[in-house]
Amino acid sequence: MSFAGFPIRRAVLSVLVSCTFLQVPAAARASDVVFSACLAELRASAADKGVGTATFDAHTAGLVPDLEVVGFLDAQPEFVTPIWDYMAGLVDEERIADGRALLSQWASVLARVEAEYAVDAATVVAVWGVESNYGRNFGERPLLNSLSTLSCFGRRQAFFRGELFNALKILEEGHVAPERLTGSWAGAFGHTQFMPSTFLRLAVDFDGDGRRDLIDSVPDALASTAHFLARAGWRSDQPWGFEVRLPQGLDTAGSGRRNKRPMAEWRRAA
């Protein structure tokens, strides 16, 4: 067997490997340039969005784009995982048992929450369990890093820019310490995963310490969740949903979560 071709192969391989390592820093440099220009643009509009320039500078200094989050935009599990698989991953016997224990542990707070917002304790705790496994999983991504990246890359940049400015307002108002503001790739945070805009609209200070803290205050988080549901039209005397089976041939054209119809109309369609 001849080995004469091996040096040439090694040379070609070395060139290919070198090119690969050259391309990665070049791509990173390109994204850094885009990111820096985008942050400069955002800084120029910060005051108009209600965020002080000093706040913007303090909390965006040193940020680098996390391009991994851009890929998550079209891969959210609730949209790509079959419904029963999705629910099985969120609701199991352990989580139900934990929920019952926490209903007892926080009974006095939950009673006050129910009296204030007319949302039953079991529903509030169920949301808590689904959203963060009762505070065990807030998400570990620095919020400002994710939101600034999504403000500059990918689709829905206008939406995420609004959420970035809202997150900066939360910090400016002193509700949450900067190092505690971590969450999901899309910017949701706290015990029940509020987006920054939802926080500013609906979070409440239920423990009376002068801050709305959905990370380190369980009473604030539970009351804010009930407030959210109440403002969304929650009625404790109605079931939260129905399981249905679609008949063969049902015309679903025009259906969707934003196209609501009365139950009677769905019965007629079936």
Rank of each mutant, 00 (worst) to 15 (best):
F159D: 05
R180V: 09
D220S: 01
A97I: 04
R231N: 14
S197P: 11
A54P: 04
G256I: 00
L181Y: 03
A46R: 12
G208K: 14
P25E: 10
W234Y: 07
P196H: 06
D92R: 04
A221T: 05
S31D: 10
R141H: 10
P65L: 15
G208A: 09
Q157F: 06
F35K: 15
L110S: 01
R231C: 13
A107M: 04
S255D: 06
F79L: 15
F160G: 14
F56L: 15
D209M: 03
K260H: 09
T225R: 05
A61N: 07
A232K: 07
A97Y: 04
M87Y: 13
D216P: 02
R212E: 04
A26S: 09
Q157S: 03
A158Q: 04
L164Y: 10
S224M: 07
V33M: 06
E173V: 06
G62T: 00
I215T: 09
R180N: 03
R235N: 08
C19I: 15
D209H: 05
S104A: 14
V34S: 14
W106R: 02
S255G: 14
P247W: 13
R235Q: 05
L143R: 09
A30W: 01
L200F: 09
P262F: 00
G89A: 09
R245T: 10
S217F: 02
R235S: 06
L181C: 07
S236P: 07
